[in-house]
Amino acid sequence: MEQTRKALLEMRNISVSFRMYGRGLEQTDLRVISDLHLTVYPGEIVAIAGSSGSGKSLLASAILGILPPNAAVRGDLQYKGEALTPERQKWIRGREIALVPQSVAYLDPLMKVGPQTDGYYKPTKKRRMLFERLQLPASVERLYPFQLSGGMARRVLVSTALVTGARLIIADEPTPGMSIEQALEALRMFREMADEGKSVILITHDIDLAVEFADRVAVFYAGTTVETAPASDFKAGPEALRHPYSKALWKALPQNGFEPIPGFQPYAGNLPEGCLFAPRCPYKTEQCEKQVPPMLEIRGGEARCFHGA
């Protein structure tokens, strides 16, 4: 069925690299995202989970075209079936695609949060309704960002995106600092948006919350997607998941054991030759160390693993 639906956003073979200066005038390209595939359909929430520093936020910046000047994006990026060029990105951001930034430092420190959230088009009435749903008292609109607590600032950021009425919201960790009720309300609002035919990319570490609202989950590791799976598989547990990293991530959650696997994510400029997860993988074979596994269809999802079960 997925083939017949038209994708809203389609990313194929995306890579992002940074040009860095070495000794003297020597330049090196540091590739931080490689071979990334992700498709977002209208009416769905795609959650992106995965390792810190795996390029989740960079991907958001790449879609919006707000990477720093020393970054280069390669690959096929399409929005509504047309290539997303820098000119188009510039027009689209804030209108068709809105961002909930990860850092509360994105708020303008010199502007009260009410007018700041209203932005250029001043939908004040809608914004007041959003504030109320997110349990922000009416007096908050007259405060400056430094007067907000972490959770309040986060709720203001969510409002800035929802108030635009965009077709696609990229929410980069919208819920930390919020109480559980507020986080649920924010996610409920994203769900309502999706049910109206819009789409949400939800970057999050609160996997247990996200799977209640998301349709699919993409798992990132070291700059690429290692698995995309229906959200129900994350609820079902490690047996339903395909990639060993997804399984390990599930087992490390406080409610499921709190047991980290040893080792660390490999970093850009120092990536292993074969499968990116091989150095930490309990199931690795010689093939894994030499060859990069392709994305394989497994049980209604995809995983980048030779032994995905």
């Binding site: 390792s51 810190s52 795996s54 972490g150 930390p176 991530l249 047991e259 980290p260």
Partner: peptide
Amino acid sequence: DEISAMLDGITQAQIWN
């Protein structure tokens, strides 16, 4: 103060350990 809200599950468990 909420030191692990921005971390993935595995890193969260590592750092807390």
